Amino acid sequence: MNYPHYNPASDNRPLSDEELNDLDELLGALPTEAAMNIEALDGYLAGLLLTPGLDLADLPGEAWLPLIWGGDGEPEPAPFASGKQRKKVVMLVLRQLQSIATAWTQHPQGWEPIFSFADGADEDTEYADAEDWAAGFLLAVDLAPEAWGPLFDADDTAELLAPIAALAAEDGGLAEASAAERDAASRKIPDAMLALWAIRQNVGQKA
C-alpha cells in the first residue's frame, strides 16, 4: 500500500478538539490492541520530527504511518473498515504532524503535547501523566536507534530524554512512582522537546 509523503508545505491547521477526539475514536475502534491512542500518536509524531538526520519529506509514508494502527495486513491494508476511513485517519495524522512542526518553528511557547490529566486528592490538584505519550515517542526512536543513540549517550541531551525513558519504562523507571513524581517528569517534557528541536535546527543550519 502506498501512502502520501509528509509535505512540509501542506495544511498546518491544528486539529480542533472535535477532530482530535474523532481521530482518537477512530484509532480506538480499530480491531487491534496495537493501534495508538491520541497521546501515543502525538508522542510518536514528535519523535519522528526530532529524529536526527531524518527528513520526513523523503521518508515514504508506508515506512512510518502503518505503525500508528498496528501495521497493514495481507493482502489488504488492515484493520480499517474502508479505504475512506483509512484516508481520513491518514489525513488527520498528517495535519497533526505538520501542526506540531509549525508550532515548534513559529510559536514554540504556545505548543502543548497531549497528555493525560487526573484529579488529585483535592479538587485543586491535577496530575499530568505522559506515559502513553512517552511510549509513542520511543516507538519513533525504535525506527532509527542508531540516529538516536548519540543523543541518549550525551549528557546534555540524555538529561532531556530521561523523563521520557523513565515514564515509558515497564519495569523500573517511574512505573511504581507516585502521581506527583510522574507529574513532575511529565511537565519536563515540553521544554525538553523545544530544546531538542532547537538543537536539531541549529545542526541543520550548520550542515
Results as ranks from 00 to 15, higher is better:
residue 124 D to W: 00
residue 185 A to K: 07
residue 188 K to M: 09
residue 149 G to K: 15
residue 148 W to A: 05
residue 166 A to M: 14
residue 183 D to Y: 09
residue 130 A to I: 03
residue 179 A to K: 12
residue 165 A to L: 12
residue 153 D to M: 08
residue 178 S to M: 02
residue 191 D to T: 04
residue 146 E to G: 01
residue 158 A to V: 00
residue 125 T to P: 08
residue 131 E to F: 01
residue 157 T to F: 14
residue 190 P to M: 00
residue 188 K to S: 05
residue 162 A to Q: 14
residue 184 A to H: 12
residue 190 P to S: 01
residue 176 E to K: 10
residue 143 L to P: 00
residue 169 A to N: 10
residue 136 G to T: 04
residue 180 A to M: 12
residue 148 W to K: 00
residue 149 G to A: 11
residue 183 D to C: 02
residue 129 D to I: 01
residue 172 G to A: 06
residue 183 D to A: 02
residue 184 A to M: 10
residue 134 A to T: 06
residue 155 D to H: 14
residue 177 A to K: 06
residue 147 A to S: 07
residue 183 D to G: 03
residue 174 L to E: 05
residue 137 F to W: 09
residue 129 D to C: 06
residue 186 S to R: 04
residue 144 A to I: 00
residue 140 A to N: 12
residue 164 I to E: 02
residue 160 L to W: 15
residue 159 E to T: 10
residue 163 P to T: 00
residue 159 E to D: 15
residue 186 S to E: 02
residue 144 A to S: 14
residue 166 A to N: 14
residue 143 L to Q: 15
residue 129 D to Y: 06
residue 167 L to V: 01
residue 177 A to W: 15
residue 168 A to L: 01
residue 187 R to M: 15
residue 178 S to E: 10
residue 178 S to F: 07
residue 146 E to H: 13
residue 176 E to L: 14
